[in-house]
Amino acid sequence: MSQPTFETAVRTQGVNMFFGEGESRVTALKQADFDARRGELIMLVGPSGCGKTTLLSVIAGTLTPQAGTVEVFGQRLDGLGQEDLTTFRRKNLGFVFQSFNLIPTLTSLENVTVPLLIQGVSQREAEERARIVFEKVGLKGREDSRPNSLSGGQQQRVAIARALVHEPPLLICDEPTSALDKDTGAQIMEMIRTLSRAPNRCVVVVTHDQRIFRFADRIAEMEDGRIRRVVDDPRQLDTTHL
């Protein structure tokens, strides 16, 4: 692995993660070394059970590894307590989930305001800022719609707006296109790639969806809890086992 540079956004070294004890112990990450740069969109790919989601959780600070170091935008996460990790996530991370996780009883605009309200921003200011992001993701006019009345693509746009509204440097996307058709998935990925071009932003995407590999700047292939290799061109991947 290369030494950290000012361009490094995320860096993990020798990360070990296992679940359970004794005979039921399952190793999810084995000496996982990974890095992502500012301004890039990097994908984590690999077969089911290879540790993609666990590594993503470690980078997001929702899981603490048993060994190894995790550094995100210069901040070591592996030594932080739960409260500090929560504060870190609040300020630095945006999430796009596989099943959107939009609260169905709130309007789309209210869903987008959630990260700002968590930060303590006033309701009025949160709504003003949410409207601006809403327009950026192409959903102007659908602010008062409930998530269930939107199409899958529109719901994912709302989720992206929610992930971006507090301008986090790191965007974590977990299977962002798995619930979308090909064209909608491509549109969403185009949007995510554009967002990743901000100089101080990094986007990490976990996916199985080979149709979107072309949107990645780099692809990290995982196998058995570690990074097998990192490629710049998806054609370099052996996709038969993915």
Partner: peptide, 18 residues
């Protein structure tokens, strides 16, 4: 019914006190 949304809110940085 709202557990996964509370989990999402937690992941986004809301403390348990909130």
């Amino acid at each position: 019914e709202n557990l996964k949304y509370f989990a999402a809110i937690k992941a986004m940085g809301a403390g348990m006190a909130t």
